Simulated scan of single mutants.
Amino acid sequence: MEGFGVPHDTGNPGDNPEGNPWTVLTSTMKYENPWIEVIEHTVLTPKGTPGIYGVVRPRSLATGVIPIDDEGNVTLVGQYRFPLEQYSWEIPEGGGEKGVDPQVSAARELLEETGQTARHWMPLMTLHLSNCITDEVAYTFLAWGLEQGAACPDDTEVLATRRVPFAEAVAMAMRGEITDSMAVASLFKLRLMADGGQLPDDVARLIRP
């Protein structure tokens, strides 16, 4: 079985330094469940030697949001992460159906995990997560103008929330207390955007030191 969406050899990589130097010979579905697929490709490596390459393909997009309240606080979500076997503090995150606006999915996750809705939204980043083993894509956002309601987490989630000043959330990432890649990258980018005057005034005033 060929394909599964992985690009095949595009020709001599010397002709296009950013082209695909791999040749995919066959592709086989090794495992699937409602959330992921695992595809094993038999390949010729960029040096022309035979090999295999396994790719984990999530069935959904990843989304995350930094919610800033009127006092300049960020709501963080804590949960035990099964693959890591450790507890993790993060921004509100979750999956969204492919083909659905990622902001819509991020707003749903924000409501489910924190009970918050937001009047204002701004895209922050598009990320490729662990790009040597997965094609997972993440979209993150800034949200402000919050209203608090009741959270409604999934049955599989046991969540805690805490509100910290934006500067403290950045400091937690600097200290290694936040290690989730979407959270770290989005917090740092937002800090740089604030320092560079790239945010609307009504949200910039909330996160200035």
Rank of each mutant, 00 (worst) to 15 (best):
Y87R: 12
I91W: 01
D202Q: 06
D9N: 14
G115W: 10
G149E: 07
L142N: 00
N73Q: 05
Y139E: 03
I207M: 02
F141D: 00
L61G: 06
E71A: 14
F4D: 02
W89P: 07
R119T: 08
L199P: 01
D180M: 11
M125S: 15
K30R: 13
I68W: 02
T117M: 06
D101M: 07
V158L: 04
P46Y: 03
H41K: 06
F4Q: 02
G51I: 05
I207E: 00
E37I: 11
D195H: 14
L129Y: 10
H128C: 08
L159C: 08
R191C: 06
T156N: 09
E168I: 07
A204F: 06
M122C: 05
V24F: 15
M174E: 15
T126H: 05
H41D: 10
T26L: 01
I133E: 15
T134Q: 12
D180N: 15
P67I: 12
D70M: 07
T42G: 02
Q103T: 03
E85V: 11
E109I: 01
T114M: 07
D69E: 07
K98V: 11
H128K: 12
M193L: 15
T23Q: 09
R108Q: 14
S130D: 11
E37P: 01
Y31R: 09
G176M: 04
S88N: 09
G95R: 13
Q116L: 15
R191V: 03
A118K: 02
R81T: 06
A118W: 04
V170C: 15
P13T: 07
S186W: 09
E97V: 13
P209Q: 09
L192P: 00
T42Q: 11
T42L: 04
H128P: 00
G176A: 04
Y80T: 09
S88T: 14
A185F: 10
P58Y: 04
E90P: 02
A160D: 13
V104Y: 12
M1V: 14
M29L: 14
Q86F: 05
R108K: 12
D101L: 06
N12E: 12
V43T: 05
R108N: 11
E37T: 14
P200Y: 05
Q103Y: 00
E97F: 13
L124S: 01
A151I: 12
A173V: 01
V24I: 15
A107H: 01
M193T: 00
G14V: 08
G78F: 04
R81V: 14
P50F: 10
V65K: 08
